[in-house]
């Protein structure tokens, strides 16, 4: 796959380096974007360990594990797509990205069912929040509502990132699979891929932090 070089770059190599470096700079700032929320989570979890453990037990571990596997698979298909476009296989790259979009939508659908379930259980923080722990029967531990505030803020921000990623891939799939017109630059696929892998990494941390607090007991 040949790449055109914009006039302000010396060669393809320098252009590629600038593009990937730019995305890594953005991702470093994204770490702190999520980092603020994670710091809030860490402080409240340290202050209310019982409340966070009780809240975590009300999440569906099976759905969380399934969604983690779905996201890891979507990272693989993105990596394979980048591989395909660099070896000149435009169609294969397009199909792999299209499959990535399907996986991303599958993740968001499962997340949507989880949100709906939490809503019916009155676990959405606010005036209607009500935590009834049937196993214990007595008053809920302090901080359960804060756990669910963290849960919705962190997974919500993550879901917004996924929607953006799906949008980016949608444009690329269209350009890759249309009959006429040039294929998009492999760099655009690679840089959008970096963003998607980052969103995957965020989930890799959110999963144990939200779903795996004291599963035992």
């Amino acid at each position: 796959m040949t790449m055109s070089v914009a006039h302000h770059f010396d060669d393809v190599e320098q252009q590629k380096h600038a593009a990937t470096l730019g995305m890594w700079v953005f991702l470093a700032s994204e770490v702190l974007f999520f980092g603020g929320l994670l710091a809030g989570y860490a402080v409240y979890r340290a202050l209310y360990p019982e409340g966070f453990a009780a809240g975590s037990r009300h999440l569906d571990l099976w759905l969380g594990t399934l969604n983690t596997a779905v996201l890891l698979t979507s990272s693989l298909t993105v990596a394979l797509s980048v591989e395909a476009i660099y070896s000149g296989n435009r169609r294969r790259a397009g199909y792999l990205l299209a499959f990535t979009i399907v996986l991303g939508i599958a993740f968001l659908t499962v997340k949507g069912f989880e949100y709906a379930h939490k809503y019916h259980e009155h676990l959405v923080p606010g005036a209607h929040f009500q935590f009834v722990d049937h196993a214990e029967g007595d008053a809920p531990p302090q901080g359960v509502e804060l756990f669910f505030s963290c849960y919705f803020a962190l997974t919500g921000l993550h879901a917004v990132h996924m929607v953006i990623g799906i949008g980016l891939f949608g444009v690329l799939v269209f350009e890759l699979l249309r009959e006429k017109g040039n294929a998009p630059s492999p760099l655009r696929i690679e840089v959008a891929g970096l963003y998607w892998h980052f969103v995957d990494v965020v989930w890799v941390f959110l999963f144990p932090l939200l779903y795996l607090i004291h599963v035992a007991e």
Partner: peptide, 19 residues
């Protein structure tokens, strides 16, 4: 290349410092 490594480490350097 080197500068990308630096930026990837910057990402994981500031978060523990914040915490």
């Amino acid at each position: 290349r080197g500068s990308v490594h630096i930026y990837s480490l910057v990402g994981i350097f500031w978060l523990p410092l914040l915490l």
